[in-house]
């Protein structure tokens, strides 16, 4: 753990946590779409063909999974930017 102590004052702390929370909510909203909504509608989506797959099937076996991987890397990239903005980098 790094030794550089960055003290945020309460106002900064609120802004930092507000940004972190908003990012988390956006990610969880997208997660809800791919993890819950799309599988729920897999039946109707199957009438659409995608790269030779029925779309509903494709999304549950691959599409949503790819979305999760992308989401998590994007979330970390955005979160790192937020941390940097408030000077909260750590020494590795």
């Amino acid at each position: 753990m790094s030794g550089n102590e960055v003290k945020l004052n309460p106002e900064q702390m609120d802004r930092y946590w507000g940004k972190t929370r908003n990012l988390t909510f956006v990610i969880l909203f997208l997660w809800f779409i791919f993890a819950i909504l799309i599988p729920w509608f897999a039946g109707p989506l199957n009438s659409v063909s995608f790269m030779g797959f029925p779309l509903g099937f494709y999304m549950t076996v691959q599409g949503s999974l790819i979305a999760f991987v992308v989401l998590i890397f994007v979330q970390n990239w955005r979160q790192d930017r937020i941390d940097d903005e408030f000077g909260l980098q750590e020494e590795e």
Binding site: I27, L28, W31, F34, A35, P39, T60, S64, L65, F68, V69, L71, I72, Q75
Partner: peptide, 8 residues
């Protein structure tokens, strides 16, 4: 879906 989405 469950065992991958959980990581989010």
């Amino acid at each position: 879906v469950g065992w991958t989405g959980g990581y989010i």
